[in-house]
Each structure stands twice: as structure tokens, then as C-alpha cells.
Simulated scan of single mutants.
Amino acid sequence: MERTPLEDIAQFLRRLQWTALGVGACWLLWVLAPVLTPFVVAAMLGWLGDPLVDRLERTGRSRNTSVILVFTSMALLVLLILVLLVPLIERQISTLIVSLPRYRDWFTGIAIPWLEQRTRLEISDWLDLNHLIELVRSNWERAGGVATTLLGYLSRSGFAVMAMIANIALLPVLTFFFLRDWDVLVERVASLIPRDHLATASRLAKASSDVLGAFLRGQFLVMVTLGVMYGIGLWGVGLDLGILIGIIAGLLTFVPYLGPASGIVLGVIAALVQYGDWKYVAGVLAVFGVGQVIESYWLTPKLVGDRIGLHPVAVIFAVLAGGTLFGFLGMLLALPIAAVANVLLRYAQERYTHSRLYAGDHPADLLDPATAPKADAATPAGDNGNGNGAAGAERETQ
């Protein structure tokens, strides 16, 4: 039955309304990004902590007691990271700034002449390391470190100070309420879904949560573990910048090969500049070799698994695109949106492969190999199973 022109116009208007609604939601998200940032961070923390709260509830504790235990643990973990990691990183960066003249001399006196001799390229003509290093040193010394830079930025804008203080004060409060009421929020959202689509929506939501949870929890633990291992290993080798290099390599681990490759390059350069001895270079290679073996055979299979489905290129694109469109809020929303989009694409592919458009007029022959006749490898061609081949078939027809 063909549709009337009025039905076509009505369908077009409905699609136009949904498009306008989507554009309006994106515009509203862009405008309210500074306000929504603490809510998104708190919601992600509540989502990450809800399984722990549910697990504590199953042991017989009340919801409020479980939330208080999980919230206190999260707050202590963040405080420990701030107390230990921030001063350590600033000392490492200060050490790097002091060591820049040695790196400059090594590059200009050893590395670049060695490359020019073998590539026959005049690298020193278009790479002015002295200017670059002095620019970095002057900017760092003028800033006086991370804390001075941050305080200087805040002092130039009273509104920025108030906004940052409000966000910091709101974050623990919002996180606590998201942890406490997460199950209630999920039930309310589920109650708005049409009953005919509830089973499909629940399956897609669970798959999205599993993908995102496996990536965030597992990859975060892998990054932290490898960062600590690399940092301690390089510090044990004797590198002054070993902890900083280990942290960088650990953070870049979510991109395959980029984390260890960058760590090896930086570690080898640091060893050559500091000692000029291949024995320390061998120590750097040993640290990353052991780390890669542990990651490949234990950390990634145990903590991450093979159910993620988020390609590293897709992760990088999602984070960069979200940051470009919506700033820091877009970077926070990039991974959840990428995980949901990945699940929806798999669902769309599943629907497509079971559709008549893909299978044609004989979907069973294409999609269900069990319905196709199976030939017995031990039976001669033309045999009907009674061992007489074509003759037996002829007798049966008679």
C-alpha cells in the first residue's frame, strides 16, 4: 500500500523535529558545559563506584553505610594521589629544566652530527635547539612552577576563582548523592522506556556499561600499574628523570605500542645524556622488556580482557573530537558516547545481517549453515548413506 503525500509530509516533519531537537540539545550542552562538568564527573564516579556499593549491600550492610565506605575510600585515594604525585611530578619537571643544557649539548654535539653523517641531511640548519631550550627554561622560571602558574591564572579572573571553588566544593557532594541514588535513577530512566522496547534497551545498556566499564576500570589499572613499574624500574637503573618517564609511558599505554615505544626512546636518551654508557641503556631496555611481558601475559588479559571493542584509534578520535567541540566536558563524555555508539553499531550490524536486504530470498541458507545439507567425508559421492551409492538410490526410487 502506497503512502499518501500527506503521510510523506508528516514523516518529514517528524524527522525535522527530531533533528531540531538534537541540534538544540548539542547547543545547550555547549552553552552549559562549564556548569555541567562537575555533574558529569560526579555521575561517572557514581557509576564506577556503584558496583562496589552493591557488593557491600549484598554482605548485609545498609545502602547508606555502603555508600559512606565507598565514598570515603575514593576520597582518601584522590587525596593520596594529590599528596604524593603532584609534588613528585613537579620535582621531576624541575630536574628536567635544570638538566636541559646537558640535553642540548648532547643533541647538538653528538646526536645531530651522528644523524647528519648517516642521512646526509643538514638538520642543524632548520632545528635551533638552543632557542627552543632557552624558551622552555625562561617560561618555566618565569612561571615558577605549576602552582604559581595556576595561582597566576586564577588571580586574573575573580569569576574563574569562584567557579573553580564551586566546582571543587560541589564534586564530593554530587558524587555522594549519585552513589546513594544511582539505582533509583536507573529505575526512573527505565520506567520512561516504552514497554515494547524495554528488553532491547536493557540489553544495549548492559552491553554499553560492560564495554565502558571494562575499558575504564581495566585500562586505568593497567596504566597505573605499568606507570609505577616503569618509574620504579628506571629509578632503580639510576635515571634522574626515571619517574617522570615512567609516568609518561604509563599514561600512553592505552594506545598499543605508543606507551612502551615513547618510554624506550625517552629512557635511552636520558641514559645516554646522563651516563653515556650502553650498560644503562641495556638496563632501560630490560625494564621495558619485563614490563611488556607482564602487560601482555598477565595485566591486559586479566584486567581488561577481550570484550572492550573500542579500537585505540576510535578512542583517540573521540577524545580529541569531544574536546574540540565541547571542551573539557566533551573529553569527559567522549568515552561513554564512543562505547554506546560502538554497541549501537554492533546492534545495527546484527539487524542488518538478519535482514532480507543482506540475505536475499534465502536467508536460512546464508545465515544458518545447519539447514544446508552436509556431505559425509567418508561417504562416496552420490552415496545416500546405505553404502550403495547411485545404485542404492535407484533401488529406493523403484
Rank of each mutant, 00 (worst) to 15 (best):
T175A: 07
R188K: 15
E187C: 11
L198D: 08
L154D: 02
Y153L: 09
L179C: 06
R188S: 14
A166Q: 00
T175F: 06
M162V: 01
R195E: 15
I168E: 05
R156H: 01
H197T: 11
R156A: 04
L185P: 08
A169I: 06
V186D: 13
F177C: 09
Y153F: 06
T175R: 03
L185G: 12
P172C: 03
A163S: 08
P172W: 07
F178C: 04
L198S: 08
D181Q: 14
G152T: 05
G158P: 01
T175G: 04
D183G: 11
F177H: 10
N167I: 01
G158K: 03
L192R: 11
W182H: 12
N167L: 04
A163F: 03
R156G: 04
F159R: 00
F159Y: 02
F176Q: 03
L179N: 07
L171M: 05
G152R: 10
T175E: 06
R156D: 02
I193T: 08
N167V: 02
L179R: 04
L174H: 06
F176K: 03
L170G: 00
L179Y: 10
L198V: 09
M162A: 05
R195Q: 14
L179H: 07
L154V: 05
S155E: 04
F159P: 00
L198P: 05
W182I: 07
R156N: 02
L198G: 02
I168V: 10
